[in-house]
């Protein structure tokens, strides 16, 4: 059970049960849809971007605990960040969940997002953890097509 407890940390379970910023954003000026065909997870990310800074961000959709919690924690982390800060964060997050990070340094940088380190033991779940981030990236780049993890 220990790998399982690593994956489903209490913070993750909590964000899955009660996702934060789970709504449409009325004044969003960026929006993108993401889809993971493997498990049917769907997410829409809404952003209010002003002068390269994320003023507000939210999401809607349905997915597994990992993808829901990842989207929820992501939205909590992003407010007030610039695009380049976000790009760096996504890079660090991706290294974390794919098990490529040299642990401590990156984890500090990631703050709360570090709870996803357990995902690296479950390679098939990496896409669940990164779906919201890919979708966020598409929204920031103003892509119209649904991004797919495949």
């Amino acid at each position: 059970m220990s790998y399982l407890n690593d994956l489903y940390q209490e913070v993750i379970l909590d964000h899955n049960r009660k996702p934060r910023n789970f709504r449409e954003l009325e004044d969003a000026n960026r929006k993108a849809d993401g889809y993971n065909p493997l498990c049917g997870d769907k997410v829409t990310v809404y952003i209010r971007l002003e002068d390269d800074v994320v003023k507000d961000v939210s999401f809607k959709g349905s997915g597994c605990a990992i993808s829901t919690a990842s989207a929820s924690l992501m939205t909590e982390t992003l407010k007030g960040k610039t695009r380049s800060e976000i790009a760096a964060l996504f890079k660090a997050f991706r290294s974390l969940v794919t098990g490529k990070s040299d642990a401590t340094v990156k984890q500090a940088e990631l703050g709360k997002l570090a709870v996803f380190h357990g995902v690296s033991e479950f390679p098939v779940r990496v896409k669940c953890a990164t779906l919201a981030w890919h979708t966020l990236q598409a929204a920031l780049e103003n892509q119209q097509e649904t991004v797919s993890t495949e």
């Binding site: 399982l4 498990c39 997870d41 605990a65 669940c128």
Partner: peptide, 12 residues
């Protein structure tokens, strides 16, 4: 409980 999460627990 999402099927995908159920699958992971069952696999363990």
């Amino acid at each position: 409980a999402h099927p995908h999460d159920v699958g992971t627990v069952l696999d363990q």
